[in-house]
Design a protein around this nucleic acid. Structure first.
Lengths: 143, 143
DNA sequence: ATGCAAACTCAAGTCGACTTGAGGTCAAGC
DNA sequence: GCTTGACCTCAAGTCGACTTGAGTTTGCAT
């Protein structure tokens, strides 16, 4: 198991040293020791950081990701949570797909102003109706 | 053209009155006048708000959306910007699709710990893209 | 042995998009 | 005419995820 200093971890994981300290403080990663006052990391931290990055991309907050590690430090994600997040992602994907089509249409549309294009207005209106739905749903939950 | 008071606009657009004042201050919407000191809105503000919501969902910031309106107030989006954003969205969609599949696999995977599953590890390693950030499924950004 | 880039700690700042609070005004119903 | 509640303004607070700054310490190359 090779020892890594913070700069090397930072460089290989694509984050700054400050971010690593921040993550450690939050309990997301751990250093295996110190050399003087300097942190020493094991290379498994890289996999862990990759996982954190993936989790963030999937829409989990750092707090949620933190909860995915059991006290021992091994990964232990609730499978139903994963399935739930996959479904959520799926809905997001579909919405973004419609949006992309709308943008593409608007980009090619010959109407002098976008609001004069019936297709564009339809897309805008469709977004509007969905926003009503969301307002009924739970208000507070961020990434 | 019916006159709307702030409460009605808020209710119909699914935002709070405070948000409407905030948007007005930022130049994203305008009231057509005042009745006493109270704002009066024309109903076209609803379409504009729907557009703003759509834009947010597509990953635009309020500042970017603001720039899409010409000084006169009409919508005037740079078409190449739209096409560019559509392409960006497309890349995001593909990446999120892979992520969703990964999550789905992990949810069904029989390995005792996810890190012991080769498929999961492959997904984790594959996650390196940075441009994903913009369209992450932040419920705040959702339509 | 010495110089210094790189670490360290802890506090505070930043950014976006709002929300909340304090204190004041006013149109409408009783 | 009076109360009340919806509005108003302006300032400050919040939230997440970092970043930045200030002041201090030290491992390592020369």
């Amino acid at each position: 198991m090779s020892d890594l200093d913070i700069a090397e971890v930072a460089q290989r994981a694509g984050v700054t040293a400050a971010t690593l300290r921040f993550y450690e403080e939050k309990g997301l990663i751990r250093s295996i020791g110190r050399r003087g006052l300097r942190r020493v990391f094991g290379d498994s931290v890289l996999e862990r950081l990759a996982f954190i990055s993936l989790g963030r991309a999937a829409g989990f907050s750092l707090a949620e990701i933190g909860r995915m590690f059991s006290p021992g430090g091994t990964l232990d994600i609730d499978r139903s949570l994963l399935a739930e997040r996959a479904d959520e992602l799926d809905r997001t994907i579909r919405r973004l797909g419609a949006l992309r089509d709308g943008l593409r249409h608007a980009a090619a549309c010959p109407a002098p102003s976008h609001m004069e294009c019936p297709t564009f207005r339809r897309i805008v209106r469709a977004a509007e109706s969905k926003s009503l739905e969301r307002h009924i749903a739970s208000p507070r939950n961020k990434i």
